[in-house]
C-alpha cells in the first residue's frame, strides 16, 4: 500500500519538470518539487521501516535513494525563481531516474538485504550523497557555460531570459563540490576498509569512483575558476554517470 507513495512523488517531479519550462508556472513547479520530495521521503521511511536491513542495497534501490538526495540537494541549494533553468535540467532527470528505479524494483517495500551493518549503510549513503552533490554541481556548471556563451556572443535576450549571475553559479557549484568531496572520501574509505577485511579484487565501479574522487579532489585542491572550473565539474560528472548507470549493477551483485 505504501508503495503507492511512488505516484504522488512521480507526479510532483513530473509536474515540476514540465512547469519549469515557463516563468509563469515556475512557482507551481517549486511546489511540485516540494510535494514530490515529501512523498518520496515518506516512501523511503516506509521502506526503511519495513526492510530487514538496508533497504536500498540493489542498484535500483540505490537509484531511488540517489534521486531523493539529488532533489533534496536541489531543494536546499537551487530551488529559487532565478534558478528555474536548473530545475528544468534537474527535475526531468530526477523523474526519469525515479521511473527507472521503480522498474528495477527499487521502490518496493519489505525487501531483504545483506547490508545489515552500519559500515555498509554509511558507505552507500555517503557515496550516493556525494554523487547527488556532483550532479547538482554539474547542472550549475552547465548553466554557467551556457550563460558565459550567451554573454560572449552578446545575446540580445540576455536580460530577458535571465539566469543567475556567473559569479553566483560558480560559487554555488564550488560550495556543492566542497561539501560533496569529504562525503565521497569518507564513503570510499569505509568501502576500502571493508573490502580489505573481506578480501576481493577492485571492480570497475570502484575504479571509476576512485577516478571520480581524484577529479573532484584535484578540483578542490587547485580551485580552478570560470570556464575551466565548469568544464572540470562536468568531466567529473561524466564519471558519476558511468558509475551510476553503466556500471551500476556490477557492484551490487
Amino acid at each position: 500500500m505504501v508503495e503507492a507513495l511512488f505516484w504522488p512523488a512521480l507526479l510532483g517531479y513530473g509536474e515540476a519538470a514540465l512547469a519549469y519550462a515557463s516563468v509563469r508556472t515556475s512557482r507551481a513547479a517549486t511546489w511540485g518539487v516540494r510535494i514530490g520530495w515529501l512523498a518520496q521521503t515518506a516512501l523511503l521511511v516506509a521502506q526503511a521501516a519495513r526492510a530487514d536491513g538496508f533497504p536500498w542495497s540493489t542498484w535500483a534501490g540505490s537509484l531511488n535513494l540517489f534521486v531523493w538526495l539529488v532533489v533534496g540537494a536541489y531543494l536546499i541549494w537551487g530551488c529559487r525563481p532565478r534558478f528555474r533553468l536548473l530545475g528544468l535540467a534537474v527535475m526531468p532527470l530526477a523523474a526519469a531516474l525515479f521511473v527507472v528505479a521503480r522498474i528495477g524494483g527499487g521502490t518496493h517495500t519489505g525487501s531483504r538485504s545483506d547490508y545489515g551493518n552500519l559500515f555498509l549503510v554509511l558507505h552507500v549513503g555517503l557515496v550516493l550523497a556525494a554523487f547527488a552533490g556532483f550532479t547538482l554541481a554539474a547542472g550549475l556548471s552547465a548553466l554557467y557555460l551556457w550563460e558565459e556563451r550567451r554573454l560572449k556572443r552578446r545575446a540580445a535576450d540576455i536580460l530577458r531570459l535571465r539566469l543567475p549571475p556567473l559569479a553566483s553559479l560558480e560559487r554555488l557549484s564550488w560550495r556543492t563540490i566542497v561539501v560533496s568531496v569529504p562525503l565521497l572520501t569518507l564513503g570510499l574509505v569505509i568501502g576500502i576498509v571493508r573490502q580489505r577485511e573481506r578480501g576481493g579484487a577492485i571492480d570497475a565501479l570502484e575504479a571509476v569512483t576512485v577516478l571520480t574522487w581524484l577529479v573532484y579532489g584535484g578540483f578542490v585542491a587547485a580551485r580552478p575558476r570560470g570556464r575551466s572550473a565548469a568544464v572540470v565539474a562536468l568531466a567529473g560528472f561524466a564519471l558519476v554517470i558511468v558509475a551510476r548507470l553503466a556500471l551500476a549493477g556490477s557492484h551490487f551483485t
Binding site: 550563460e147 554573454l151 540576455i158 536580460l159 530577458r160 535571465r162 539566469l163 543567475p164 549571475p165 556567473l166 559569479a167 553566483s168 560559487r171
Partner: peptide
C-alpha cells in the same frame, strides 16, 4: 526587472557577470 536605458543595461549586464 528589465533596464530601459543603455546606461542601466550596462550596469545590469555587469551584474549578470559579477552578481
Amino acid at each position: 526587472e528589465s533596464p530601459a536605458s543603455v546606461s542601466s543595461a550596462a550596469a545590469a549586464l555587469a551584474a549578470q557577470v559579477f552578481g
